[in-house]
Design a protein around this nucleic acid. Structure first.
Lengths: 245, 245
DNA sequence: TTCCTCTAGTCCTATAGAGGAATAGAGGTT
DNA sequence: AACCTCTATTCCTCTATAGGACTAGAGGAA
């Protein structure tokens, strides 16, 4: 969480040590999303290695998705691709396979102690303070998804003061701009069951209607969990598409 | 389909041309799954480039999943990871999140003309000959999934003579050993709906029971579709887990 | 304004080579 | 048998360097 004194491991190859060093620079905000990092030759000089070694370290971070290189321009810390975020994470498509673009409305915001399940998913202590949001996502004015979002309180405390109207339709850009956290990957689990009463009410369906339940844990560049989210939607409207490897 | 005369593009960097060359060697069977390819220095000499250039080409193919390098041993054409195939493609987990290991039984095998949907997914002409398999996958003796598998006939003709008992529990190893085709990636789409009568009958459920429907297109190393599969399973028993990016 | 040229900065391609690390196998020792 | 040592083979790390390609911006020409 806090910027660590570098636990560099001398047994690792230098390019791996550099990778860790650079990743830490991104993680603790010295290199910021959207900005260019120093050019490769100056990094090489700075760390007393050959340019090729720096290039190799940067190549690792590029394949890990943390950096992005543009010939002639520089090397940039990747910002969450919010143009693509829907395509990457919100893979609900309509009957014709087109991605749907939901509008979002925050319904509630509370600080609660984490229950056992949320604590495990977020990797925090049982009972640790959690921000719990509920929100509704609508397409063409019709409610499509009811979501319960859980965030560790401290890193996301900035969200506690934000008026609901300013949350916008996507949370990940907000995590970046308001809290400096970038979502780099996620794990989703889909199953099928019945919605809790609150979800059914907001969705305007009977509690007995078959419902798709999607659990998602979102991770930062350091693979630490940032968010746990559970989403409910009517099963007949649901279609989920994914490319594997 | 047939081995092409190399359409090497001189405008591409040499390492990309080499990549294409090496990929073609795998695709047309000169380099075979599980076997080692020539060492990097001999490839370099053979093609008149520096070793570093060969290494770069091979690195691309490693990240694409076609090759695998082992220090001190060599560079190998990757074989479908059948130990991991379940983990990679068959992501149904039980209520506790453990992957389930189904047993398979082939129910039927026919050669049919492709209908419009199958033809599109497989990238073949409408009405082209297709091998259509149905099979049942069981866990602990109970039917869990009913599957309709569609394959282009000619590349998979070897399956037409194989007794059902010799199909085994997984098809992908069979595609490799019997037909020389390796599944490298796949796209899945999940939705919920109602099963066709045949599926409901084999699964022992009512036709009205909510059912998970998974469509999968499996691709070879060259991104060409190899198989189209549609699977049906009772929704309450279903849970699907996926890592994103 | 619009277009062109030039330049500085940056990443990309490619080469060459030295030394290290991991593996497999041969052969010897206990 | 079990273990060790030695060697050949192979991939890995790292250095050093040269020229090319792409971008952005400054300045001048039409």
């Amino acid at each position: 969480m806090t910027a660590q004194v570098l636990p560099l491991d001398d047994r690792l190859p230098r390019y791996q040590q550099l990778r860790d060093l650079f990743a830490a620079a991104v993680a603790d905000g010295r290199w910021r999303p959207g900005e260019a990092i120093p050019p490769e030759d100056s990094l090489a000089e700075q760390h007393g290695v050959a340019v090729g070694t720096v290039r190799k370290a940067l190549a690792v971070l590029v394949t890990e998705g943390m950096l992005e290189r543009r010939q002639g321009r520089g090397t940039f810390v990747r910002r969450g691709n919010f143009g693509n975020a829907l395509a990457r994470f919100f893979r609900m498509t309509d009957a014709k396979g087109r991605p749907m673009r939901p509008v979002s409305r925050i319904l509630s915001r509370k600080v609660l102690p984490a229950d056992a399940e949320v604590a495990e998913h977020l990797g925090v202590a049982d009972g640790a303070p959690i921000i719990a949001l509920t929100r509704l996502r609508l397409v063409d004015g019709a409610p499509l998804l009811f979501e319960e979002v859980h965030l560790p309180r401290d890193p996301f405390a900035a969200l506690l003061d934000l008026p609901f109207a300013e949350f916008g339709d996507l949370l990940y850009p907000l995590y970046e701009t308001a809290c400096g956290r970038v979502v780099a990957s996620a794990r989703e689990t889909i199953r099928f069951g019945q919605p809790p009463a609150a979800a059914a009410a907001e969705l305007g369906i009977d509690a007995g209607v078959p419902t798709a339940i999607i659990d998602r844990i979102a991770f930062g560049f350091d693979q630490a969990p940032l968010e746990f989210r559970r989403s409910y939607g009517p099963a007949e409207r649901f279609s989920y598409s994914i490319d594997i490897r």
